[in-house]
Amino acid sequence: MHGRVSGLVYAIYYPVLAALGVAGNLVTIVILSRGMCGLSRCITRYLMWMAVTDLLVLITAVILDRISTLHFPVLFLHTTPVCSLRLALIFAARDSSVWLTVAFTFDRFVSICCQKLKSKYSNKETAAVVIGVICTVSCVKNIPMYFALEPLSIIDNVPWFCNLRWNFYSDVLWTMYNWMDHMLNPCAPFLLMILLNALTVRYILAANRARRRVKGNVEEQIDSEMQNRRKSIVLLFTISGSFLVLWATYVANFLFVRFVKSNYMTGSNPNNPRFIFQECGVMLQLLSCCTNTCIYAGTQRKFREELKKGLKFPLKLIGKKSEFIF
């Protein structure tokens, strides 16, 4: 009974996630590419490429992996070569998305807390280089994942499905690669996000106290600089905060597996609390690829205005066509 319930949850959750996430990220890419949101070109580049990589995660991990497995269990996508390529692309897109979020957080940390480095680092040229390096390294790093898999079965000389090689957890090189992979994602990004946000908060609190002392705590006087700073950090904290919250379960499960020397649960244990906890972590992690559009709409007035214009545009076209007909 529980297995059928979990299957129904997956069958509803992942298509809805894909539909909303793909539409939201496409809209975000279009709006940000227009450059009409009042954000600097540096911030715009980071946010737009975060949306691009989030879109790739949804396509590879949700549509081509989760949904195809649920609804089309025997498909060419599940032949071993395609399955191996799909897994490598999932990991590459996931790593790019995560590390671009870290890069954006670091850029905002430099812009807010390191005024001497701000002009040299927080610019569109540096952002382009950082984005290119992150995406390239993520792709190269995950090439070995293609070769880490072997066929689960061979039918009519065609290899089907993917299974980790028998020596993946025993061979020294594969063990080193596996540890490196998990240290680079999710451990290092998670810790860096916490550290950078903690340092940013400490700097902002100290700066605000200093400015209040200089201004003599006159409440009637409007401190425009503090207001601007407050607006600039809202975007940072909402993006990084949602990342930390939605990845927390996934990271907790990873740490449990590593330090208790346990294994990841398979689909043959749908009623096991560990399996439910593990799958909740994956579901929340993938949900993080859909939240940024809501964050921009909730925190950026000009983004909301551009979004409203985009929603009204089809209605205007319909109205013009109706006038032309009549």
Results as ranks from 00 to 15, higher is better:
G3D: 15
L8A: 03
Y13R: 08
P15C: 13
L20H: 04
G21W: 05
L26Y: 05
L26P: 01
C37F: 09
C42T: 10
T44I: 08
R45M: 10
M48C: 07
V52W: 00
A61L: 00
I63G: 03
I63N: 02
D65V: 07
H71A: 15
F76V: 07
F76P: 11
H78W: 07
V82N: 04
S96T: 11
S97T: 08
F104W: 02
D107P: 06
R108A: 03
V110R: 06
S111R: 01
Q115N: 06
K120H: 12
Y121L: 14
A128W: 00
T136M: 03
N142T: 13
P144T: 13
E150G: 10
I154H: 06
F161D: 11
L164S: 09
W166F: 09
W166V: 11
D171F: 01
L173V: 12
L173Y: 12
M183R: 01
L184G: 15
C187F: 10
L191C: 14
M193K: 06
L195T: 10
L196E: 08
R202I: 13
E220C: 05
Q221Y: 14
V234R: 11
L235R: 04
S242P: 01
Y250V: 05
N253Q: 11
F254E: 00
Y264A: 12
S268N: 14
P270R: 07
P273K: 10
F277Q: 10
Q278R: 14
L284W: 01
N292Y: 06
L307T: 09
L307K: 10
L311Q: 08
L311S: 06
I318T: 05
I318N: 05
K321F: 02
